[in-house]
Each structure stands twice: as structure tokens, then as C-alpha cells.
Design a protein around this nucleic acid. Structure first.
Lengths: 335, 335
DNA sequence: ATGAAAGCGCTAACAT
DNA sequence: ATGTTAGCGCTTTCAT
């Protein structure tokens, strides 16, 4: 492995000078500079970032903790983080928790030992043990779509409220008065929030006397499917259903269709996430958009700011969500 | 930052001993060991993997180069790599090339400077410049689904031939004699191979006098859609279409359906990749399965073997592909 | 305008 | 059974 000494000898300078020309960190005579460059070229020098990191205490590396890259929620977020990172000469360690807090703790601990400059936690399974681990080690970090807002850490949120309010208002304007909501898994904070927001919105229309119900799903297709089958069995059909995520909505849609129910003629359906799938199913799904690429990009930016200045006041960023009307919603027949 | 010296002082031993108890690399008296452990606990010691790496020349880190995590081909592969890596105490740097060779070269160069122990290249845009870069630096690497088989590097392939042959044979047994193939982007080697395999298979049935044609797609939904629209316009409709990937097939399906063509009654369609989507569209898509999770996992294993023993003879691993029959194929009406 | 030398935290050959 | 010491490749203070 060729190092500063080799270059220095060949260029007839000291290692110090080599360092300075490489980092442009103090004046060096143009001629000496050229000699150094020439030597580097001849030796095909490749800097050793490990050594540099050990000396400077900076690794130009961040960790990104997610639950499961196969979950269609993540790829765009990851892309956003990675692009912004590379643009700033950072590289990113990707860590899957597999929805397992234990694994999350281990990953974070590995990242810390690697002396990464910061961590983006977007695993949505962040609980107090992970939070404690992060704050205990005073590593830089930002939390994505984590729900306890009262905590004093850098964080980014989706404001589900707006999108859900738009969805409900859209349905109401179409004449719907019976609106059910299929929620996500019980232990998922973001799912809890979505339900909360739905209920709050519905209740704000108390003069309309809306009929609503919260049903259980699991944020996967099968969950939506089964819940809808159950509704069919019980003949308990509203005129519209809002789902906690798109997969649930797609599962429900399949179930209804298999039961001979026409969408949107007989029942309107709205999803949440706006994953690519929503434009592929038929009818195309009306859904609430989350800017996942944007939140990833911004999370990385936020982390960079934090790294640059640890004294920065705590940063918060909220992402509006908005309704995308497609084909799965229509006038209520009940009118 | 607490280091070996701090621990050593507190435990009344030398830093060497600290190192040896941490790495279990020579005998240390149980009592001294205990003193060291105690000191570590008291100081909340976190090893610095950077320093260790600099000293040992090993980073327990690998790089994974892909084109675009939003491409549904990748998430499962990435998952496979990551899981196997973590299981072996490695962490992985994820790098997107964004289908840009230039970017690929830069990423690889960054990885090398970080002294990663190896690289998995699965960007399918591997060209000679990248290959040269890899071999020039004698970094450990494996190539995933790269097509030039005559080259002497560790590599993993999908054997598209088998799956495509199954697809053709399936169609023939259903009475189809007019079979078109919608290919992928021109510059993509794996797309080229798929076309080649299709033609070879078709030609092997020369006694049947099959009618076939190769049309152009781009491996995205819109490409399949437009090609199919074109076919509709020209009234040039075969009884069956095989597509170079699932997205193309789904696009084509949409186009046909919008033109009043029933699938599979009027035309049979087969995709390739078996992405999750194929089970969601209706009719569910008959497709050729690629074990993407498996290839990712095995790629990491292969790389680990290479890292363990650089003298190992070159490794190759081929993954069978196989037809999954669903709802988008049926008897040809022409009979 | 350039160099010498100490140090980042760890490993490992060599002593004792 | 444990310690001394010289690196790993780089940065950076202090000299000159």
C-alpha cells in the first residue's frame, strides 16, 4: 500500500507537505505541488480514509436504520438519503431491523463503534430503549416519522392530519356519510396516529352525524383483504373506506371485487402512502401522498446540519400529506 | 473518548492485556480478566473499530453497488445481502449508481478508499471500465447477474434460459403458435440475454413453425404500454406475449385491456421477475421467478469466502429461474 | 515555504 | 502470565 512516505520520497518533500497539497490546507509552491501530484499519479496513490478518520475524528459516514427494505415505504426514502449523502461526500451504512427492536439496538451499537458521524433512524419501531441508547452516547441522530413529538431531538414528521382531513372532506362532498377506517398493526405508533387523526376529523363534522367505525388491519394486503371479507360476511358495508396504508386498501379492494362489489360504484376506497402500486391496480387508487423521497433527502440534510454544528437548536420538519384523487372514489349511491 | 490506556490504568494492567482480553487472543488470568471487564464497564467503553481496522487491515465492511433501490428488482437482493452480512458481523455500504456508469466508478472508488473488505456489484451496468477498476485495485469483489461469462471473476447468474424455455413450452402446450417478445432497453446486457434465450428456444421448435417477433420495451410500465398500443394500432396481435420483465408485462396488459382485449381469453401474457406486483394485478400475472433474495444472500456468502481466502479458485453460481403459472395465460383461441 | 514529531486507538511481534 | 514498543496512514502543532 502506497502512503505519504512513498510519495514524499519520490517527490522529495516531507509527508507533511504531501498532506497539505492533498488537503489544500496551506500554501505550497506550485512547483512542489506539481512534483507531489506527479508522484501520486506515478504511484497510483489511493488515500486511506480510515487513517484520515482516525486522525480527524470524522468518518464522512452515516448510518440509516430502517425496518425492512422490502416494505414499499422505504426504497424512496433510502434513495433520498443516499443521494443527498453522496452529493456531500458521505457514504451510508444501511441497517435493517426486521421490525425487531433488539436488532435495531445492535445495529446502532455497531454504527457507533464504527464512529459514524450520525444516524438516521427511520425504523418506526423506535422505542425508549433505542432513544436512550442514542442519547446516552451523544451520537448525532435524527428521527424520521417517529411519533412522540414532545421529545427534544431532531425529527421529521408526516402530517397525516391534513391528508386524512382532505380524504374525509372529499368523501363527504361526494355524499358519503358512512365511512369506515381500516387501521394498521396495534404496536405501530404511526398507525395509531393515523387512527387518531381520522377520528378527530370525523368528530369535527359532528353536525353531519357521520357514521364511522375503526376496523383492524396489519398494513399488509392480507390484512385488508380479510377485514373486507369480514365486512362482507357481516353485511356491514359503509359507502366508503379509508385505509391506514395502500396495501391494506388494495387488499380490501380485491376482497370487495371478489364479492361482486363494484369500486367505486358501490363503495369508495382511499389508501395512504401513494406507493407505485396505486397507479397500477384497477381502478387506480385514490390515496394520500407521502413525500418519502423528500423526507429522506431532508433527513440527511438535517443530519448534516447537526453534524456541522452540534449546538444548533433542535430541528423539526413537518411534511404535508395530500390527497391524490384517482378512480377508486365516486359519488355515494345512497343519495 | 475512553481507550485502552484508560482501561489499563484503572485495571492496573498494560494496554496489551486489555487488547488480549477483548480479543481473547492469549491467555489472561481470570482475575486480571475480571478487573479489565470491570474497568470497561465502569468507563462504558466502546471499541473504536476504525483504529482496529487501521491496525489489522480489515474493516468488516462491504460495499453493495446497485442501480436504483426504487427498482423493484433490488429490495429483496439488498435484504439478502444485508442479512447475511450482519449475521457475519459485517456492515454494508449501499451505493446507487442511478444507471450511470460514471457514478458507479465514483462509488467504487469511494468504497476502496474506505478500505472495505469487498464489493458486490449488482448494478447490471457493469462495463469494462468498472471491471478494469475492480481488477486494477485487486479489491475482492463478486458480480451479480452480469453477462459476460467468459471472464475470470467470481460471479452469480440467473439462468434465464430455463425459465424462458418453460414459458415457451407452457404456451405451446396451450396451443399458442404466435408468440411475441417485448424486450428491454438496448443497452442492458441482461435484456439482451433474455431476448437471445427467447429466440434460441423458439428456434429449437422449428418443426412447429412458430411465428414470432421481437418488439422493443424499456423495462418500465410505460414501455410495455406503448408497445402494446402500437400492436393494437397495427392490428398485429399474436395469441401470446412474453415480456422481458414484469413491469413491461403489466404495462402491456393495461394497454390490451383498455383496447377491449381480454386477458387471458384473447391473449396470454407472461412476465419475468416475479415482483410482488404480479400477484396484485388482475388477472394475476404468469411470470418467471427470479430468486432475488437468494442471489443476494449467496453473493454475500461468496464474497465472504473470497475474503477468507483470496487464493480460492474462481466461484460461479447459477440460479435456476422457473415459470410460475397464474391467471394471465390460457388456451389459445385460434384452435 | 517547508519539515519534524507527536498523536488518533488499536494490534502484534518480541521480551521477560 | 504480562509488558514494551513499534507500527497502521493520516493530521496538525510547533519550529525554522
Amino acid at each position: 500500500m502506497v502512503n505519504y512516505n512513498d510519495i514524499a520520497k519520490l517527490a522529495n518533500v516531507s509527508p507533511t507537505t504531501v498532506s497539505h497539497v492533498i488537503n489544500e490546507t496551506r500554501f505550497v509552491m506550485p512547483e512542489t505541488k506539481e512534483r507531489v501530484y506527479k508522484a501520486m499519479r506515478e504511484l497510483k496513490y489511493q488515500p486511506n480514509l480510515l487513517a484520515r478518520s482516525l486522525a480527524t475524528g470524522k468518518t464522512q459516514t452515516v448510518g440509516l436504520v430502517i425496518s425492512d427494505i422490502r416494505n414499499p415505504f422505504y426504497p424512496e426514502l433510502v434513495q433520498g438519503v443516499e443521494e443527498m449523502a453522496v452529493k456531500n461526500d458521505y457514504n451510508v451504512f444501511l441497517c435493517n431491523t426486521d421490525y425487531d427492536i433488539e436488532k435495531g439496538v445492535k445495529s446502532i451499537s455497531a454504527l457507533i463503534k464504527r464512529k459514524i458521524d450520525g444516524i438516521i433512524v427511520a425504523s418506526s419501531q423506535v422505542d425508549s430503549s433505542i432513544l436512550k441508547q442514542l442519547t446516552d452516547t451523544d451520537v448525532n441522530f435524527v428521527l424520521v416519522d417517529w411519533c412522540k413529538r414532545n421529545i427534544k431531538v431532531d425529527s421529521l414528521y408526516f402530517d397525516y392530519k391534513v391528508g386524512i382531513a382532505e380524504a374525509v372532506s372529499h368523501l363527504i362532498s361526494l355524499g358519503h356519510r358512512d365511512i369506515y377506517f381500516i387501521g394498521g398493526p396495534k404496536n405501530l405508533k404511526t398507525a395509531e396516529i393515523r387512527i387518531r387523526n381520522f377520528i378527530d376529523t370525523i368528530e369535527s363534522y359532528k353536525d353531519l352525524n357521520l357514521n364511522y367505525k375503526i376496523l383492524e388491519g396489519n398494513h399488509k394486503i392480507d390484512g385488508g383483504y380479510e377485514t373486507a371479507i369480514e365486512m362482507l360476511k357481516n353485511k356491514d358495508l359503509p359507502t366508503a373506506v379509508i385505509c391506514s396504508n395502500d396495501l391494506t386498501a388494495i387488499g380490501a379492494m380485491k376482497a370487495f371485487q371478489s364479492g361482486g362489489i363494484k369500486i367505486p360504484d358501490d363503495i369508495s376506497i382511499i389508501g395512504l402512502d401513494n406507493i407505485a402500486l396505486t397507479e397500477i391496480v384497477s381502478p387506480e387508487l385514490t390515496t394520500i401522498e407521502l413525500e418519502r423521497y423528500e423526507i429522506g433527502k431532508t433527513a440527511m440534510e438535517m443530519l448534516l446540519n447537526r453534524i456541522k454544528d452540534e449546538k444548533l437548536p433542535r430541528q423539526i420538519c413537518t411534511f404535508k400529506t395530500k390527497l391524490i384523487v384517482r378512480e377508486s372514489t365516486a359519488e355515494s349511491k345512497k343519495n
